[in-house]
């Protein structure tokens, strides 16, 4: 057991955003968090890495309440990749990845060989070693996301939390980022918008609706025609990919193609 949430509630300005969620990430597996816009995915992720404090309930890391763990200790175990985080500061790729060593260094420590190794290894794992000295603002969206993941890996986490890492990326980069995440072998909790990507890459899926967990389990058990219609309000037909994974076909009103369409 690694990271788990038990009966977690969190609200702001009188509205419950996360409404009694219980879930657990299996070690070394990828847990996908899906749900419509405003279903509380991002908020739940922020509670899981203690960027927000739960109103009630408990988030546990190896059975310890993360509210009792110092922020620095937590950051050595748990890394977070935000969606589309950027900066106006002139940083190069290695500067960004080096930030991942922050929780491992005391205020006066100088840069060590172990730090340098962690940075080099992280860059190699995301395939960006060649871009070591390139400026951040010259990177594409997909490359930036890779560097963020490298920064997270430089924290040497055992759990990685990613908030819609494929947002705004073209399909090639969406696939390559998620393939990369699958190969990391780290426990991941990843919020995703695209149901087919979730079905392709996640070992387990948790489906949120209006702050509540409405289904969780393998993609086969969660992604059903009935559940998707109920939560997302769209009609779908569930098929299978060549690799045996779930494939979701969206059924739209045939009239929208007009008279000319077959």
């Amino acid at each position: 057991m690694t990271l788990s949430a038990r009966d977690v509630f969190w609200g702001t300005s009188g509205r419950m955003i996360v409404d009694g969620v219980t879930l657990e990430a299996a070690p070394g597996k990828i847990l996908g968090l899906i749900g419509p816009n405003g279903s509380g995915k991002s908020s739940l992720l922020r509670l899981l890495c203690r960027l927000r404090n739960v109103s009630s309930g408990v988030v546990e890391l190896d059975g310890r309440d993360i509210g009792q763990v110092s922020r620095r200790e937590l950051a050595r175990r748990l890394a977070f990749v935000e969606q589309q985080a950027t900066t106006e500061i002139q940083l190069c790729v290695c500067d960004v990845v080096r930030l991942g060593r922050t929780p491992h260094r005391s205020a006066l420590a100088s840069w060590s060989a172990a730090d340098e190794q962690a940075v080099d290894a992280a860059l190699a794992r995301v395939g960006m070693s060649e871009r070591h000295d390139q400026l951040w603002h010259t990177l594409s969206g997909g490359e930036r996301q890779r560097v963020h993941i490298a920064r997270a890996l430089a924290q040497t986490p055992s759990e990685l939390i990613l908030d819609e890492p494929t947002n705004h990326l073209d399909i090639q980069h969406q696939l390559s980022i998620l393939t990369l995440v699958r190969r990391l072998g780290v426990t991941c909790i990843v919020a995703l918008h695209d149901l087919n990507l979730a079905a392709l890459f996640c070992d387990e899926i948790a489906l949120l609706h209006e702050g509540r967990l409405v289904a969780s389990g393998t993609p086969e058990t969660v992604l059903t025609e009935e559940t998707i219609r109920r939560v997302f309000g769209v009609a779908v037909r569930i098929g299978a990919t060549a690799s045996g994974r779930r494939h979701i076909e969206y059924l739209v009103d045939p009239d929208c193609y007009g008279e000319a369409a077959p």
Partner: peptide
């Protein structure tokens, strides 16, 4: 948020 997730 990024700073907090880095342990600051």
């Amino acid at each position: 948020d990024a700073a907090a997730s880095l342990g600051v």
